[in-house]
Simulated assay, not measured.
Amino acid sequence: MQPPPEMASLPVVALDKVEAMRKGIAHLFAVGDTTLDEPHQGFVRYRGRFLSDPADCFDELRAVFEAEGFTPTIREEENGRIAIIALPQLFNPPASDWRINLALFIATVLATLATGSFYNAETADQAFQIWRGWPFSLSIMLILGAHELGHYFAARYHKVAVTLPYFIPLPIISPIGTMGAVIRLKAPIKNKRALFDIGVAGPIAGLVFAVPLLLYGLATSELGPISPEGLLEGNSIFYYFAKFAIFGQFLPNETADVYLNQVAWAGWVGLLVTALNLMPVGQLDGGHIIYSLIGERAKQLFTPVIAILGALTLASFFIDNTFTWGIWVLLLFFFGRAHAEP
């Protein structure tokens, strides 16, 4: 971990602050040794053992450090010893500009309306009547919005400073009119329990909407003969059996397939987005979840995941002449190495 530039010339911390913090946490953490300027100048490291569950007492512990102008983080060292690292910085992020979130939300609604109107349009006039895309837009925005608000409310529950969701409109280029949505952490996550809860809350909340929307969409979609010009969506195990439950046959078969309406298409996209987000790497939800469970060992999963996606890229290129998985390889190669460390 490299210190931020503004910390590069920090003075050595005053000993009275070091002692005040040690005494303030004595009923929560039994300090075995104290080291100044470790791991960087101006930092303080306390090593020892917790007397209470760190997840239960962290807010009280943090208040002690913040009273002296420090922010605590908990680390498990290679020898298994527990260390509290006091960063000589308080995180008091300014309020976000909600107008940006609102503008992006409106732009994404318009982009998904346009995408929905093009989907299944029978004439050029219908394609440009964007209000016809409301079933798709409403469905996909419910799924994406629930996903991000799941993260948001879990973060608020754990008193982690985060932004409101930033929706990302991407009309024309994206087949769903958007690149999804993100929330941004404005301060470190306090512990692994919070990291797990924040990471898992999004996919669960998204699936609460994606699954019933998919089932309703399938029930209101029509079967028809397979067309060589149609777009064949992929089958997950759940999607495969969902179609069997609705239509009483495995689809596609030799003669027929289901032609997804706008709601079913949004539900299918919701399942895909959730599955991709659960890949156990980097800043994806799956990366947060796996890091909260196994710590630094999670970084060892990066190479196998990239290798599997690389194999999928080659297979899809030779079979269907598509390079979709290659985009994920590139994104994760450059942005999938860093984890959110509590």
Score class of each variant (00 low, 15 high):
residue 136 F to S: 03
residue 86 A to Y: 03
residue 277 N to P: 02
residue 141 M to N: 09
residue 225 P to S: 15
residue 240 Y to R: 13
residue 218 L to W: 07
residue 6 E to H: 14
residue 58 F to R: 00
residue 73 T to E: 10
residue 246 I to Y: 06
residue 30 A to G: 02
residue 206 G to I: 00
residue 99 R to M: 10
residue 169 P to S: 07
residue 14 A to Y: 12
residue 67 A to P: 00
residue 239 Y to D: 10
residue 201 A to D: 00
residue 202 G to R: 05
residue 111 A to P: 03
residue 310 G to I: 11
residue 37 D to A: 00
residue 291 Y to G: 02
residue 62 R to H: 15
residue 270 G to N: 07
residue 138 L to K: 00
residue 25 I to H: 08
residue 270 G to M: 09
residue 64 V to H: 08
residue 227 S to C: 08
residue 108 T to V: 07
residue 334 F to H: 03
residue 101 N to Y: 04
residue 142 L to M: 01
residue 81 R to D: 12
residue 313 T to M: 06
residue 245 A to E: 13
residue 316 S to K: 08
residue 173 I to P: 05
residue 182 V to T: 14
residue 125 D to H: 10
residue 224 G to R: 11
residue 82 I to E: 04
residue 202 G to P: 01
residue 217 G to H: 04
residue 228 P to S: 13
residue 244 F to S: 02
residue 316 S to H: 09
residue 221 S to L: 09
residue 168 I to H: 01
residue 285 D to W: 08
residue 314 L to E: 11
residue 289 I to F: 05
residue 306 I to P: 12
residue 32 G to S: 14
residue 269 V to G: 10
residue 320 D to C: 10
residue 228 P to G: 09
residue 195 L to P: 03
residue 191 N to R: 06
residue 270 G to Q: 06
residue 222 E to M: 08
residue 146 A to H: 02
residue 220 T to A: 11
residue 206 G to K: 06
residue 199 G to K: 05
residue 185 L to I: 07
residue 181 A to C: 13
residue 145 G to D: 14
residue 323 F to W: 14
residue 94 P to N: 10
residue 53 D to M: 10
residue 147 H to D: 07
residue 338 A to K: 15
residue 178 T to L: 05
residue 131 W to E: 14
residue 282 G to Q: 12
residue 40 H to S: 01
residue 275 A to G: 13
residue 329 V to G: 00
residue 31 V to Q: 12
residue 23 K to V: 13
residue 19 E to G: 01
residue 24 G to N: 12
